[in-house]
Nucleic acid binder design. Sequence first.
DNA 1: CGGGTTAGTTTAGGCACTAAACAATCTCGA
DNA 2: TCGAGATTGTTTAGTGCCTAAACTAACCCG
Lengths: 380, 380
Amino acid sequence: MTRTLPAGQRTVRRHNLALVLGAVASTGRATRAQIAQATGLTRATVSALADQLLVAGLLDELDPDRGTPGRPGSPLQLSPGGPGGLGVEVNVDYLAACVVGLDGTVRAQHVAAFDARTAEPGLTLRRAARLADQARAEAGIPVSGAGLALPGLVDRAGVLRRVPNLPQWGGFAAAETLGVLLGLGVSAGNEANLAATAETGELRDFVHVSGEVGVGGGVVRDGRLYEGVRGFAGELGHVVVDPAGPACTCGGTGCLEQFAGLDALLRDARCADLDELADRAGEAHVAATLAAAGKALGVALAAAVNLLDVRDIVLGGAYARLAPWLVEPLQAELRRRVLSRDVEATRVHVSELGPYAAVRGAAGSVVARLLAAPDAVSWS
Amino acid sequence: MTRTLPAGQRTVRRHNLALVLGAVASTGRATRAQIAQATGLTRATVSALADQLLVAGLLDELDPDRGTPGRPGSPLQLSPGGPGGLGVEVNVDYLAACVVGLDGTVRAQHVAAFDARTAEPGLTLRRAARLADQARAEAGIPVSGAGLALPGLVDRAGVLRRVPNLPQWGGFAAAETLGVLLGLGVSAGNEANLAATAETGELRDFVHVSGEVGVGGGVVRDGRLYEGVRGFAGELGHVVVDPAGPACTCGGTGCLEQFAGLDALLRDARCADLDELADRAGEAHVAATLAAAGKALGVALAAAVNLLDVRDIVLGGAYARLAPWLVEPLQAELRRRVLSRDVEATRVHVSELGPYAAVRGAAGSVVARLLAAPDAVSWS
DNA sequence: CGGGTTAGTTTAGGCACTAAACAATCTCGA
DNA sequence: TCGAGATTGTTTAGTGCCTAAACTAACCCG
């Protein structure tokens, strides 16, 4: 059982600092009085909290807003020069790194093709660290930590526990190793989970499905990633769509991945890559393949929706590109199978972040942690 | 978005009061010094908190424990006479009510056969309220509120949104109506969800499956029910096991309920009731039916485990009775399909609460709320 | 029966919040 | 042009809750 800690003044302070930052983040800019209004704190308290955040370098004060009667308020904003987050992604065939500012803007982003299948984990991480240092130098802002996105089951200690596509990474302490290379605290997570957090914005409760060679998923509830007991949650790719279906790499049969994974799609549609698949979507047998994939996605997602009670689904990764052909059959299955359909229809959204949502999510998770516990600020 | 409230001294007090109650609850009885040790609070603070809880009637002080060197400590326990919770269940063919004490002991429990299908909701609730009043009188302790377990999708306001088996209840404000009848605050929930909370004890992260006519589920994460956005989470019965399978009452096809729901089991095994099913489990075609059900449960639960990352599964309702024949095929599917199987095997437990777990969970949820916010004590 | 030991309480101090008064700075209209 | 009105941000006094450390209480043991 997670040991519950006692609360004290410090806990209160942390909570309210985060509340103030949240109010500023959600509106972009806000005066102390507006923050007080939005949060329910008194103006006096907001002033004190804001002072602390200004000193810490998390907030900036802008010139007063004139034009309305009364003393003009000085708007505060998340400091553009304040500490941000570094995101690093190691995937099967590429590496990526990016730096995101406190306000969520991307300051630098680098991607490099790299075949991680044939390389040793240590070497791969050194290459990734070089990319990260490059992004860090370019961004010109300090970072308070790093997030590492990995294609497999990652436990809370940042150790890879199961990586079908990168067997040599099994048991490798990836977060710790990268931490030494970067001189930063690093927390690792599954790439699909981190990609889901990158989608969190207006939408605060949803399931994110990312279609790649494997099919990954991430569950976001009330703006926070649902991680499960060990951090392995969201594995949608191996939800069974048809137990009599084809054998899967996982050892099971008829997993979603066998119907809607990118490899399966390309094989069934007889295409070489995603571009060709999208180009030839008009042809009958390609269209049939995509429709079947959409239907399979609908079956799996209906299970997820019934289990998790979300109203929204976000299609990411390759599915964002293929959405025009997937959404219809997917929605049809949802309408048939989701229990709460009469209460409210499940909405399907398409990600706009492109294929590198995971690395953004990894960087964003660092910023999110900073915003949630602003009293422990330290960066380099 | 859920409006986040500012924190203050009061928040701290509430948190620490709950912490003290939790420490006492988990050990049964504890001295102030032991509580301080367990929680990390100082002895001075624990004394002050305990005083408040003693005055509120939530804790009782026992005679000092002699026998060890040093001043003997006075153990504290959850007050047996303190405010408890009332649980009420309206199900398709019976009504139930029970009162649970602050310490979790059952003080009174009543069940009455009642055909809710043919009765009007108002009348049904009046009958249920009578049963509840009877249990309340017998229990001899005050109750701080009531929980109502219902067989369908229940929203946060306590309104039934979808009840396949009781169509006349659709849109009925069940919680509010019962609240007026009982003169108590009532919160309603899905019966399978509430049954899951009743299993929470040592186990704090699990999926509970309850087999009845329908198949219900409940997800407990870190000791708390996962409710989802609208409170509809946990609907395991309509996870698809085979899309080409038989049509389901929900409008879909091949739902778990069609393979492992009690009606399906009795039909396939050609038995009249659960007793006969258990008695004749040795016969070949009955055994085959049960094995198929176990396999179907395994397929659906593997999906749940992959999505939610839990280590433990609890079989409840009729499945508790049928567990001897279900567990093997179920485990086999889990071993084949759960991604984290190499990290740790998924454990399958059997509920010992019997068929009335839901009404216990409903009562328990009231007590749990009391223990979590002990500063707002009021009861009758 | 006094020393050692542990439990619970008292006291002084610090921190974070609120409420209310105050100071600062603008707009607007006579 | 200048005062009235409005609104913001700050100051001050007060309260609640926690900690640390000293103190008192109550027991075992030799």
